[in-house]
Amino acid sequence: MAEFTVDDLRRVMRAAAGEAEGVSLDGPILDLTFEELSYDSLALLETASRIERETGITFPDGVINDLKTPRDLLTLVNSHLAGNAG
């Protein structure tokens, strides 16, 4: 996979944890916090786990819960895909 796009992320988030009442994933979500999106640690773990399975990358323990926004997550995924995750 070359790049994980915001639309890929939206698709995975929908399947992983859906939308809470009164929250939409359709708009500009990248800089909303996961908290604003009503994404708790469980929703985030399920999202991350689906990304791992889809892309073949493995996130180190602990990094996922430190992410604040979908942009953070997207950046993390793409840095792994580019092979420079450290």
Binding site: R14, A15, A17, E21, S38, L42, E46
Partner: peptide, 8 residues
């Protein structure tokens, strides 16, 4: 139900 509840 909200879609949040469906996957879980």
């Amino acid at each position: 139900l909200p879609s949040r509840l469906l996957p879980q």
